[in-house]
Design a binder for these strands. Structure first.
Length: 517
RNA sequence: GGCGGGGUAGCUCAGUGGUUAGAGCAAUCGCUUCAUAAGCGAUGGGUCGCCGGUUCAAACCCGGCCCCCGCUACCA
């Protein structure tokens, strides 16, 4: 246990303004695939998620609903977790930033940054709307008026605290240089580098005055901590920063922060600077994934086209949901969801290819051999895909998983492994062969079943339930909980005769992916 | 306005100088019938954004233009 490599990853901390949609879920599924893969490969994984609750918008929304902000946050957190659970997201902790522990640890952090001299008091000047009692950005204004109150805003300044972000520009550039993989994908890195080089970094106002909801600043309690500063801290307060140094030191620095491409700036510039200012190490990697569109249109509440993941799961199942988004939307880039495309991908790859392959192999075996491959104990299966170097194939897949190129992983498995297995069955036709040469037919099936074993192992991080159902339908020697990618790279003999262990009804397995549409 | 990415078959994309431009899905046809009306095979389908240039040869290199996306500035 002590020498187990550890893997700490996080997803973005979401605003609980409304229920999660397929775009929010895209990130969680992609991150979950990585977490499951790392666990398989023997890492001591810690997967952190959470909600960002200390915002003015949250307290306003709660007030609209006549709820206490805390009650509102707790209910939203419950709803978020319900969705994540429905998608089999295997998070280890879910942090609510309104929680007392987080607040206390966040105060410890900001105090440390203050003590180290990276926070100074100044004043913020901006455009203020008296109706909203809040500052507005120029972009929000409509002809110089507040878009809500239709009244002119006034220039106003008020005291605040600045974080000396400007002091870290050179250090950040040097850090990116020394750690070329820190920002993934590459295109996002170029944006940040050019931003810092061309425009430089300005000190940021990290406190707000007179807010009732939020975390009071320890060295100046009239102020609360700005939500971004607070939210980023979730990544460390969730693993013990501030009150459990041993756990913190075990998991920090994070191996990967999974975030949307729109917030790379905060994670790649502000966040490392904050950590340095507090005397801590920066994270190892930030992965800015792409966005999901709905029928080619950007998803947004104003667009009125948000899709609730639960609706899609209801039409199929969680594995199918995970498969679609990982297969159809390249994780580093944008992708698209449409009901029609969902059906196409589901039917073509899950039902017709993988599901049907499983089904036909099970049925032929049961009908002709009673589900037992007699005499196969100690026999090594033969390869079924002509010209495929299984070891190299698995390494290719592994490289794609580790690089979060999930769509390529699934493409590889379906096109270069499952389809050829269907072709192998077709050209050897064991259902015919059994009439003339039962031994040969049994050997063909014995070989073909190995493809299910290999595929189920490789697919385990993506479709955990179905992969388990396939694998445990046979008496493969290694327990499902212990399989690793390396097991997929080898065709090893079984200690005992291979046999079907799945429960069959009329000689048929329950379809893994019944066709839809 | 600046910087970056992109525009290839109905759809999603691969392909960075060299035989008739590829894959998957979708469509059409045939074979098969072990299997989830699934499988296998074949066929159709592209002026490779537009124009010009370099070259024996360009989707690929160069110049110009159009369009889409991202980051960012300025003006209002």
């Amino acid at each position: 246990m002590a020498d187990k490599p550890r893997w700490f990853q996080t997803t973005a901390i979401d605003y609980p303004n409304s229920r999660p949609h397929i775009g929010t879920a895209f990130e969680k599924v992609g991150a979950d695939v990585q977490a499951r893969y790392r666990r398989m490969e023997g890492y001591d994984v810690f997967f952190l998620m959470g909600n960002d609750e200390n915002t003015v918008k949250v307290s306003k929304r709660a007030a609209e609903l006549g709820l206490d902000p805390q009650a509102y946050c707790d209910d939203m957190a419950r709803q978020f977790r319900e969705v994540w659970d429905a998608l089999d997201i295997s998070y280890d902790t879910f942090v609510q930033t309104s929680g007392e522990r987080h607040k206390q640890c966040a105060r410890t952090f900001i105090q440390k940054v203050y003590d180290n001299g990276y926070i100074y008091k100044g004043s913020y000047e901006g455009l203020y709307c008296d109706g909203c009692e809040a500052f507005k950005t120029e972009k929000e204004l409509e002809n110089g008026n507040c878009p809500i109150h239709k009244r002119p805003v006034v220039r106003r300044s008020e005291p605040c605290h600045f974080f000396k972000l400007s002091a870290f520009g050179d250090r950040l550039l040097a850090f990116y240089e020394e750690n070329p993989d820190f920002i993934q994908p590459e295109s996002r890195k170029n944006e940040i580098v050019s931003l810092i080089k061309n425009d430089g970094l300005l000190d940021v106002n990290i406190t707000r005055r007179g807010e009732a909801w939020g975390i009071p600043v320890p060295f100046d309690p009239e102020f609360t901590i700005w939500v971004w500063f607070d939210a980023l801290l979730t990544y460390i307060t969730g693993i013990g920063y501030g009150d459990d140094r041993a756990t913190f030191d075990r998991y920090w620095p994070a191996d990967t922060h999974f975030i949307g491409k729109d917030i790379t700036r905060f994670h790649c510039a502000l966040w490392p600077a904050m950590l340095w200012a507090a005397g801590e190490q920066p994270p190892r990697k930030v992965f800015g994934h792409g966005f999901v569109n709905n029928n080619g249109e950007k998803i947004g509440k104003t667009m009125g086209n948000v899709v609730d993941p639960v609706e899609i799961i209801a039409r199929s199942n969680s594995d199918a949901y995970r498969y679609y988004f990982m297969r159809e939307c390249p994780f580093p880039s944008d992708g698209d969801y449409s009901g029609q495309r969902y059906e196409e991908v589901y039917n073509s790859e899950l039902a017709n290819n993988l599901g049907n392959l499983f089904s036909r192999e099970m049925t032929i075996t049961y009908k002709n051999f009673g589900g037992v491959f007699a005499g196969t104990a100690g026999k090594t299966p033969e390869p079924v895909v002509p010209g495929l170097d299984l070891r190299a194939f698995v390494e290719t897949v592994r490289g794609h998983v580790e690089g979060c190129r999930y769509n390529l992983v699934l493409q590889e498995i379906v096109q270069n492994f499952l389809t050829p297995t269907n072709q192998y069955l077709e050209s050897n036709a064991p259902w015919k062969l059994v009439k003339t040469d039962p031994e040969a037919a049994r050997r063909v099936l014995f070989n073909a079943v190995q493809s299910l074993r290999v595929a189920s192992i490789l697919l385990k991080p993506f479709i955990p339930r179905s992969a388990e159902a396939i694998y445990t339908s046979f008496n493969f020697p290694k327990p499902w909980a212990e399989v690793k990618y390396a097991d997929a790279a080898e065709l090893a003999p079984q200690p005992d005769d291979l046999r079907v262990t799945a429960e069959l009804i009329d000689g048929k397995p329950k379809p893994l992916f019944p066709r839809i549409g």
